[in-house]
Write a protein that binds this DNA or RNA. Sequence first.
DNA 1: TGTACATCAGTGAACGCGCGTTCACTGATGTAC
DNA 2: TGTACATCAGTGAACGCGCGTTCACTGATGTAC
Lengths: 232, 232
Amino acid sequence: MPIDPSTPRAQARVAMTADIKAAARRQLAEVGSDGLSLRAVARELGVVSSAVYRYFASRDELLTALIIDSYDAVGDLAEAAAADTAGRPVGERWTAVARAVRSWAVANRHDYALIYGSPVPGYQAPTDTISPALRAPLAALAVLRDGVEAGQVADEKRSSVPRAVHADFGTIREGLGFDLSDEVLARGLAAWTGLLGHISYVLFGHLHNGITDEEAFFEHQLARATADLLGI
Amino acid sequence: MPIDPSTPRAQARVAMTADIKAAARRQLAEVGSDGLSLRAVARELGVVSSAVYRYFASRDELLTALIIDSYDAVGDLAEAAAADTAGRPVGERWTAVARAVRSWAVANRHDYALIYGSPVPGYQAPTDTISPALRAPLAALAVLRDGVEAGQVADEKRSSVPRAVHADFGTIREGLGFDLSDEVLARGLAAWTGLLGHISYVLFGHLHNGITDEEAFFEHQLARATADLLGI
DNA sequence: TGTACATCAGTGAACGCGCGTTCACTGATGTAC
DNA sequence: TGTACATCAGTGAACGCGCGTTCACTGATGTAC
């Protein structure tokens, strides 16, 4: 007489929910987020379309689940990369996190596009997506914070930050939950957006005819970006 | 008896084509590229849906026209910024080009998302899009080349480029049509993808709760990126 | 300049399609006594 | 342990909708002689 809801029915529910999300993710790869269709998902699972409504109240709710899962997937990897390199030099750690993000993006390009590509028009992200969305950048910036503490990151002001930016940085610091000087935060955000910019540009095909060895190109650019970031 | 086709009918054709694209672009803003519908465009123009087929053979052809127009729009602005600052210091010129790109992106965020956001799934870009797509980055890198010639850009190898990347850079140089050392090309590409990364990250709402003064943030990050780019 | 024919923009009906969502239902699983 | 009731997954039909694209058509505009 199990008190936790691990009855057959509850297990089936968990499994079916996972199956639906997996089918939806496969769909996403074929037709993109706008083409995602509950009916097609149901079809793939050999189930009548209305059955899906036992698990997700609407198409948007399913989409939200996929978005959250994607943020969590990349967040998991970024956090793991940071944890696995704990105690190592900051450059190595930043590199590990960046590689984790890119590998995930390359292996799951449609999930990447879902969260870091064009916003789905008409879709309003509910608040549950906020904290998963922050995990990966937070892991990256935490690595940087550790580097500062270990004295491995140049922290002299290069150019001082204007008042408006300083104020916004205060808000961001609150969100982070740890301290980071304006100088390092500015460099960290540039490195983070630069990382995503590089990934998106290549993944979305803008260097299609120029770069054949995407991995080598990434590694090289990452090494440069990391050096800039640490202020060497 | 005009020999060029500026007869009333030809003029009407040009005007109608423009009207269709304008209506489509308005639609794009509301529903995104996947929601773009020929019928809705026709409706907005007070015309029967099949009439649009006199101007565009299919939905995809209309989409292609919008994509090309967008690339051309940002290309025009980038080239103009480069031309307007001809002879000025390279930092100033790069900044001008970057600002032009961002202003256009902010003012036309859906067109920006169309070309620099997630690729439209199932849509295969025809070759006519390639050269318009190159205009903006080409203008940016040309500014950099001028800077090198004027001795305003540090050109010593910081880290040498691996063989695979060197080969790909050769291809890119051919596409550019002018020379740029591996070192400067690497920095230039990083600055360009970093620029788009910054724009996308902010525009697509990832810093939604953190940055209130987006303009100030951009200017500050741009100033830093430009300094890095020039190798100061 | 005037007439005869060709071109072409736009009409309206129709095709076959897939979509999200609701609803009353059946039958199996779970729970309380 | 056995029975009576409640829960819930999945069914199947239906709703109203919008879509891209084709096609034969009409009537106005353009062109050649």
